[in-house]
Amino acid sequence: MEGGGLTMLTYKMLDQILHSYNRLEQTYLAVPGGADPVSAAFEEQGPPVQIAVSTPCDTFRHAPHPDLKLVKTGRFRPVPPHIHAWIELGYLYSGSCPHRVHGNSYVLKKGQVYILDSDAPHSIGCLGENDILISLLISKPFFTEAFFHHFTGGSVVSEFLSNALSAKASHDNYLLFRAEKNRRIPMLLNELMCEHIEPSTHARAIADNLISLLFLELVNVYEEEQSAVEKRSALIPVLKYIESNYLTCSLTSAAGHFRLNPNYLTTLLKKETGLSFKELVQKQRFYAITDQLKSTSLSVEEIARQNGYESTTHFYRKFREYYGCSPSEYRRM
């Protein structure tokens, strides 16, 4: 697969470039623990320092768009607290990355993306050999009316960017996108990196459109995550209902209680818990049984009867299938 439009730069070649040592990394490796031009600007316990970013850098030699800068974070040395005037989009190409924003700590995973507002203090922990963090720095003039035209209706991303562009806003926002499984974002960013290494004839227009597609895809990622959260939130009342009514409830009665289609409820439970409605009821029943075995002196037969088992033989067989021992043996554990 080739990147950069008409160029010959492949994704395999891009990977080799990203994993090779840039000049700053070579300095770190040559003089372990020595000072470097960036860290020297910071006091060890001082406030975040405003820094300027110069491009092109030796990893991304070209800057096809004046309002975009690509930077590969230097490995083998932490980046102290700092701020800058750019809106920053960070992409963890590989490995993991300790990241601190406003005193809150995060560990980024491969494929995750963050957007950081201008003038927001942040720092990065020491990156190892396979930890490749790419920062896309975007100046505010990039976000024109034409850019926002791509967003139909409101979105968390467009709201974030609108806030970032406002002189009256507090510039301390941070968005994290758990995009590890997204197939488009790596491709879009690979192509953008290729344009900054070996630009094609229409590199600026390509970069413009890649950024628009990237932000649209981030909206998709955010909305899918919010949908998953809402489904989990909707699931909790159902699980509590099973917990309270496991002796009498059925799939039909539970679905009716929450005004859901039984088939939808079955699919939701299986997807979010890995268990069917019947298996969840059985699990709750055994929670109650084992609690009574440990906390009461009731006979095994009485506990079985109270929990809906009329046949002691059937109960003993099910209990052994579930726990690998008899109820009496479980009670003695």
Rank of each mutant, 00 (worst) to 15 (best):
E180D: 14
N163W: 08
V157S: 03
R178G: 11
T144R: 01
G154P: 08
D131V: 07
S170T: 14
E180K: 06
L133T: 07
G125V: 10
T144W: 01
N163S: 14
G154S: 15
E180I: 01
G128A: 13
L175V: 07
E129H: 15
H171D: 04
P121H: 04
N163V: 15
S158W: 01
Y174G: 05
D131W: 04
I134T: 07
S123W: 11
L165T: 02
L127M: 08
T152A: 03
S162Y: 12
N130K: 11
N163G: 12
R183M: 13
G154E: 14
K168V: 09
K181I: 01
V156A: 12
S155E: 08
E129K: 15
F143I: 03
S139V: 10
L161Q: 04
I134R: 14
N130Q: 14
V156R: 13
L136F: 11
F142T: 06
I138S: 10
A167K: 14
T152Y: 01
N182M: 10
A179E: 03
S123E: 11
I124Q: 09
G153Y: 02
A169C: 06
I132T: 13
F151Y: 01
A164Q: 05
P141N: 10
I134M: 15
N182Q: 06
F143G: 02
R178Q: 13
L161N: 03
S123A: 15
E129V: 09
E129P: 14
P141M: 09
A167V: 09
S135Y: 09
N130R: 15
F142S: 08
A179H: 01
K168G: 07
A120F: 07
L176T: 04
G125P: 05
H171T: 11
K140A: 13
L176M: 04
S139H: 13
N182G: 11
K181F: 11
S135L: 12
V157W: 01
P121M: 03
E145Q: 03
S170R: 12
S135N: 13
I124P: 00
H171F: 06
A179N: 10
K168Q: 15
F177K: 04
L136C: 14
I132V: 15
I124N: 01
A146M: 00
P121W: 07
S123D: 12
V156H: 09
F147V: 00
A169H: 09
D131L: 04
H122Y: 09
S155T: 12
K168W: 13
L175K: 05
T152N: 02
